[in-house]
Design a protein around this nucleic acid. Sequence first.
DNA 1: CTGAAAGCGCTTACAG
DNA 2: CTGAAAGCGCTTACAG
Lengths: 330, 330
Amino acid sequence: VARAAGTSTAVVSYVLNDGPRPVSSETRQKVLDAVESTGYRPDAIARALASGASRTLGMIVPDIANAFFTDLTDAVEEAASDAGLLLLLGDSDEDPARERELAESFVGRRVDGLLLVSVRPELDGRWVSSAGVPVVLLDRTIHDTRIHAITVDNHAGARAATEHLVEHGYSRIGLLGGPVDKPTAHARLDGWSDALRAAGREPDPDLVAHVPFTRHGGYEASLSLLDGTEPPDALFVASEQQAVGLLRATAKLGLRVPEDLALITFDGTEISEYCTPQLTTVAQPIAAIAADAIALITHHENHGKQITHRPELIIRHSCGCTPSAPHEKG
Amino acid sequence: VARAAGTSTAVVSYVLNDGPRPVSSETRQKVLDAVESTGYRPDAIARALASGASRTLGMIVPDIANAFFTDLTDAVEEAASDAGLLLLLGDSDEDPARERELAESFVGRRVDGLLLVSVRPELDGRWVSSAGVPVVLLDRTIHDTRIHAITVDNHAGARAATEHLVEHGYSRIGLLGGPVDKPTAHARLDGWSDALRAAGREPDPDLVAHVPFTRHGGYEASLSLLDGTEPPDALFVASEQQAVGLLRATAKLGLRVPEDLALITFDGTEISEYCTPQLTTVAQPIAAIAADAIALITHHENHGKQITHRPELIIRHSCGCTPSAPHEKG
DNA sequence: CTGAAAGCGCTTACAG
DNA sequence: CTGAAAGCGCTTACAG
């Protein structure tokens, strides 16, 4: 390659990488010129094989079409790119077997790190350690000292949302929740019920539904939740995907939000700002999560770190607040 | 590695790849057992270096947060995965320089193909041919026999949408368009104006806006479009991102859709079904586009192929149709 | 049908 | 500061 243009291959490597050894500025210039004139493009594959680092990360999400994961992927891609890393993306489609398959492929491709929004109830620790790459769990926690985990305090977020609904004075505050086997869904359920109990009320099982984190899930759940004789007058909705489905259902049923049904949702993606009414939501600090993930991998800490971010309640109108008179019902 | 467990490295390679040479079933079994017991994981990097094929594709989109590109990425990832290929994802963020940078990185990583939703006005043919990988342009056309291009007939789609609005009897049919320097935006603009002219009307420049394909863009454009003394009574909206922004604007202005303002949009992503009212839209055949892209790459045609898909007008309510009485205004 | 060996294009100790 | 050489873990002609 560019070797024909001056010196040894080692020197070329040194200047291209600001290598482990110094190079005289004269030789360096000769090499640079040669690189320029030959149109040399380093082969990242060969470099990865020789150096052991592929400068590539693998990320696996359960559903890239879910706006929260889209935004998270976007943020991770950007943070990775700032660190000079490329992103291999996989969608497990909520399937643990597919997730494992993707993870194996990524490890086989010698990724420098694995970012996992896992759909497994628990990760196989043996697998992880044998993988030999740093893995950071996103949106999940884990009890394993070799694995990093970054989460948001789902319980606190759900609780804050529900408390806000309580302050508004709604009497029948329901939950449109996610699949209970998902840790995030479970924590949000607990946050909802704890807020209710703290207010001296007993959570009403007739007012809760557990459905997938999809628009369709939210739509179906809303139809059944709102069809009863004693429907909720407020709902904590565990994700924005579901909230969009809920809005479709209320429109179909001719219910007004927030007058007939108030709601607060979770995630803080852009759609919450564009819905009508604009959604009060518990926003996740997506950029911070992505930045932490990349930092954990590039600084390769030995011990698994647990990072928990605090979500932020963003007040808009779906809860019953108005711009002029926050906290007033209707 | 697994070589310590029986025979030569060549044979191992042959059985793992159903290699170029046959292996006796006895030896094959021995190898398989050894692989099993040693927990051997093939190194895809070394394989890529030796074989010249990385089994990886690179995809670059201008904005992964745009639902159309999210869905396209999702579909491509799935099709790639079915073909045993992994996907490297990059977001150019509408920046040509960034796009080039990503493309260089991907080529350096020896991808087996490059899927490009390019933001460059025209691709540098010299670069493409020197890249030495098949590239398929998505959502763009090009006059270059070495490059594949898959598009949708944007002109026909826009025209069909506008004609439908004409049939409804709207008198002031405007356009909420995309950036005119984008080929897709331009074709949709032409489709809109051609439909109008075919109906014997002159497109009214006061009724058109050109803004980015974002929710915010749609929102801002709507505010100015609808604020005049003679606002449009119908709008062809060039993307669903913009349509979502428009809906926010009409809600803010107290306008009813479709009674005060009818609309038809473009893309056919899920959100169009969940908006209120449900959006009549020109749907792009995303799965077919993705399948074609992967097929073009895996079958490595020598000559650049141009594939144009026909979009489909999906009638819902935002145009003024009702389930019971299609084509009736209001 | 199988083994021994060269080679993919880099990086990195090892000598000088 | 620089060169010659080994090695990363595979695949693939080349002999047998």
